[in-house]
């Protein structure tokens, strides 16, 4: 009998499969890739000529938007995407079916996460390209290593947090609501859609969560007033710590059974036991 395929080829195949899957769910494609691009165009049309005054000089808002929305796209491709899609697949029973196969469970999860990171990369590159072509985004190559590292830390952390949310929340409908309810209000106070004041209460709140540090660290890589190499190690460590917490929760709480089938607590257990045959 032949042996099992190598781990690498299995993860690659699962990643391709999830990517193909993603492209066939138009609503996911729209919210993850198209909507942030629409926002970029809209915000620039509305506020693009404004300037943000900094100590060193004036910073055109359009450069601020591109970096911030590219970071937001990365978050929506990882955090929102996983928190939405994983519970849907679980409710459909797809996760349970895969668990019946000899495919190692970690490979399936890895495929999900790698595909989310690929989508995040494509989305962010698309955003930056549009920024460069239409909105005078300045690319300084000396800062690109920082941009790449910041991006990787961010997508890793937000993918872990997406899996954590998918693990805590059992049904697909409530997971989707929870993902939006957490990320959208946070985006408003995290310099994604509007620049916030340096020392307001909202900023203090925003700084507790990982979105603002990630967005700011990524924006800095495209901010002409920040000197190369533009690494913000403090923010990166903070975002990574959030990611590790998310990873811990996901590993402890992740379930493969559709909601309702996995008995939790006595009443649920009784209901489940009566419902099945």
């Amino acid at each position: 009998m032949s042996s099992f395929p190598s781990n690498l080829s299995m993860v690659a195949r699962q990643t391709r499969y999830q990517l193909k899957y993603f492209t066939r769910v138009p609503v996911a494609l729209f919210f993850t890739i198209i909507l942030p691009l629409v926002m970029l165009v809209l915000f620039n049309a509305l506020f693009g000529d404004n300037v943000i005054e900094t100590d060193q000089g004036d910073w055109p808002v359009r450069q601020f938007y591109t970096g911030g929305l590219a970071a937001y796209t990365a978050v929506s491709a990882t955090f929102s995407n996983l928190a939405n899609m994983v519970p849907i697949r679980r409710d459909e029973g797809v996760l349970k079916r895969w668990r019946s196969t000899p495919l190692p469970t970690w490979v399936y999860i890895a495929g999900f996460i790698c595909s989310a990171i690929v989508i995040a990369f494509i989305g962010a590159m698309l955003m930056l390209t549009v920024g460069v072509v239409f909105y005078d985004l300045s690319i300084e190559w000396a800062k690109m290593p920082a941009a790449a590292v910041t991006f990787l830390v961010g997508v890793g952390a937000f993918a872990a947090l997406g899996m954590a949310l998918a693990s805590i929340i059992k049904t697909a409908s409530s997971a989707s609501a929870a993902a939006n309810a957490t990320i959208l209000p946070l985006a408003f106070i995290s310099d994604v859609f509007v620049a916030t004041d340096g020392d307001s209460a909202l900023t203090t709140i925003a700084n507790i969560f990982p979105l603002k540090p990630f967005v700011n660290a990524f924006q800095d890589c495209f901010n002409p007033f920040v000197e190369a190499p533009a690494f913000d190690w403090g923010s990166l460590a903070f975002v990574a710590a959030w990611g590790l917490v998310g990873l811990g929760i996901a590993m402890k709480k992740f379930t493969w059974e559709p909601s309702g089938a996995g008995p939790r607590g006595r009443r649920a257990a009784r209901a489940a036991a009566t419902a099945d045959g």
């Binding site: 193909k20 899957y21 066939r24 769910v25 697949r89 459909e92 029973g93 797809v94 996760l95 349970k96 079916r97 019946s100 559709p258 089938a261 099945d276 045959g277």
Partner: peptide, 13 residues
């Protein structure tokens, strides 16, 4: 081989 009662297959494929 397992044929589960609650079937879940990738509908988009």
């Amino acid at each position: 081989g397992v044929v589960l009662q609650t079937s879940g297959v990738e509908n988009e494929f």
